[in-house]
Design a protein around this nucleic acid. Structure first.
Lengths: 131, 131
DNA sequence: CGGTATCCACCGGGATACTG
DNA sequence: CAGTATCCCGGTGGATACCG
């Protein structure tokens, strides 16, 4: 064994001293994850991202990009052209995040059918239609 | 290239056919992650978990455990003793999740100081107190 | 094009009280 | 001990309108 043991302080503290809680704040925002993944492929412009992520609103894309920039994961590069243009790309730091994200994505792809089966089974078993 | 490229459909679909969106639903719930991590160490009883995760309410712990059980990640084992007792533990499937979660946690631990520095720098730079 | 500002609906989730 | 039920508040995030 080795990688299957996470050393997390118990009790898990509520404050900011817990790395895993910190990352959950980030991953919790599904938009952040999607943006990082897309930017992992290439540089994107604002509206490219907007079109590439189904269901995200302009507002959420803005907020997400701002947060990612604040955390030093992406850079924002505006050009004083007309029409205006802004490029977004991952920083070196942001790129390092792709690896654990890939691991997670691989896990999701590998096991999603099993999970859905478990879910269906559970629903069929534990939620009898009373009548 | 190799592990730094995620193959995600673009545009990222809004429906359930996207594994990464599925996993975000899960990881989005910080409680789920914490519970899985704790159960990665050993079997827990309900109130042990409750005490071990600062800030979680009884309600959220219940909901979280239910969802994890539904997805086939944990098992619930009640004993007909008095006082009653319920054990929770990871399934084999749940245990496989520990590895990607570990990767993520390692990343968080490794880079959290850099991120916080970036954040402070950004706040100090971009949010000047106007005067 | 790439945003910002405002309004508002929804629901995640805490607090509390009660039960098997 | 291990929950369930109810109430209710606040933040998340969509829709819309406007700006440089």
């Amino acid at each position: 064994m080795s990688a299957t043991h996470l050393n997390v302080p118990v009790p898990v503290p509520a404050d900011g001293d817990c790395a895993i809680r910190d990352i959950c704040e980030f991953v919790g925002n599904k938009w952040s994850v999607l943006v990082v993944i897309l930017l992992g492929q290439r540089v994107y412009r604002f509206n490219e991202l907007h079109r590439s992520i189904e269901g995200i609103s302009q507002r959420m894309l803005t907020l997400t990009l701002r947060k990612l920039a604040r955390d030093g994961l992406v850079t924002r590069t505006p050009y004083a052209t007309v029409p205006p243009r802004v490029d977004y790309q991952l920083t070196d730091l942001g790129r390092t995040l792709l690896e654990p994200l890939t691991a997670l994505n691989t896990w999701a792809e590998t096991h999603q059918s099993v999970i859905r089966a478990a879910r269906r089974h559970h629903d069929a078993t534990e939620t009898p239609s009373g009548s």
